[in-house]
Amino acid sequence: MSNTVQEKTTLAAQPLAEPLPVHLRINGEDHRLQLRPWVSLLDALREYIGYTGTKKGCDHGQCGACTVLVDGVRINACMTLAVMRDGQEITTIEGLANGDKLHPLQAAFVEHDAFQCGYCTPGQICSAVGLIKEGRAKTRDDIRELMSGNICRCGAYTNIVDAIESVTGGTI
C-alpha cells in the first residue's frame, strides 16, 4: 500500500514585519532594542541581549526553565513577546546576587544540593523568589504545589523544597 501525502502549508512567503523599538529594563540596566514582534522575551534575553542564564526547556510554558520576574511577578519568558514587555522591569537569575554575595535562595540551593545538571535551576530560583513574594505558601505541601510549575528532570525536588524552606523558615 502506498499513497501520496502532501503537507498542508501556506506555501507563499509573507512579508516580514518591521522591527519595533523595545525598551526593556533588565536587572536595573536599560536595554533599547529593535526587535521584530515575533521575538519572545526569552529569545530576546538569550539571543539578542546575551542573558543566557534564563533557560529554554520547552518553549511552550510546560517546564518553567525560563521563569523570570516581570515587575516582580514570576512568569514564563517563553510565552510572552518581548515587544509586549516594552518599558517593564525584568529580573533574571543574573540580577539576583549582590555582587559576589549570593541571594539567600541561591546560597540555599548550593547548600542543600537543590540541583544536579543545573539547567532548571535559574528558573527554580526565580520562581522561588516569586513564590516568597506572593506569600501563599504556608506549608511544605504548599511549596510543593506552588513550585510545580518548574520541572526538574534530575529529580532534585526534595532538596529544592528544603532549600526554599531554609530561607523562609518554614512559613512564608
Binding site: 537569575i93 548550593v110 530560583i125
Partner: peptide, 21 residues
Amino acid sequence: VSRVDGYAKVTGQARYAVEHH
C-alpha cells in the same frame, strides 16, 4: 562537599551547549 560548580549554576553563569556568543 558542596558542588564546586554550584556558584556558576545558581548565578546563571554556567553556559550550556548553545549559549555561547
